[in-house]
Amino acid sequence: MSEPMVKVHNVTKVYERGKQKIEVLHGLTLEIPKGDFVALMGPSGSGKTTLLNLIGGLDKPTSGEITVGGNRIDQLGSGQLANWRAHNVGFVFQFYNLMPVLTAEGNVELPLLLTRLSAAQRRKNVAVALEVVGLGDRAKHKPRELSGGQEQRVAIARALVSDPQLLVCDEPTGDLDRKTADEILGLLQVLNREHGKTIVIVTHDPKAAEFARRTLHLEKGQLLEQAA
């Protein structure tokens, strides 16, 4: 683990809710090396998801710098940021957020519609991604025909299919039972160890955090400690 994949420098994030201003992150600085697997933990409202959103380019900081994979994403416009996300980051959510009208393979293919790949190449990549998550035989199934664990595997395949170096996961096991959660976390561990993906997950679950290489604790918008 050498050059940082993610550099967060003195980042502040303030949300405006009506007349109220809520400062969620206060001058936070952080580095995540390439190939790392980091768990972000902390109580509700500590800023975990906000930090994850900033790292994934879903939101922009009020002040400070964020560099991911060598790109200053805090300086990108909305269209550039969308393009950057399409090619550099994969997302996994707590509630899977699959398109109910599409099959598993349709869901996984969705990000590839933003590439110049041919239909045949897209199908090939989708098949590989579904194989990696162990769902090659469920390609034609719609989300409602899959279990929660299988839906989350499809979501991981969707996050992987365009081969991003960074995966950001917001409570990826929050809606799953222990056994399934461990399977999903094991899969993320494989992606980190064998495929070299840098992974950042937000979790409340200490057992989930054990699958990461290290855990960062946030409280009231500030990083508390860095545990090995």
Partner: peptide, 15 residues
């Protein structure tokens, strides 16, 4: 609305 947000998350532009 959440599905449309996911599309944007995946990299589809506002347009």
């Amino acid at each position: 609305i959440p599905e449309l947000a996911v599309l944007k998350t995946l990299g589809f532009s506002d347009g």
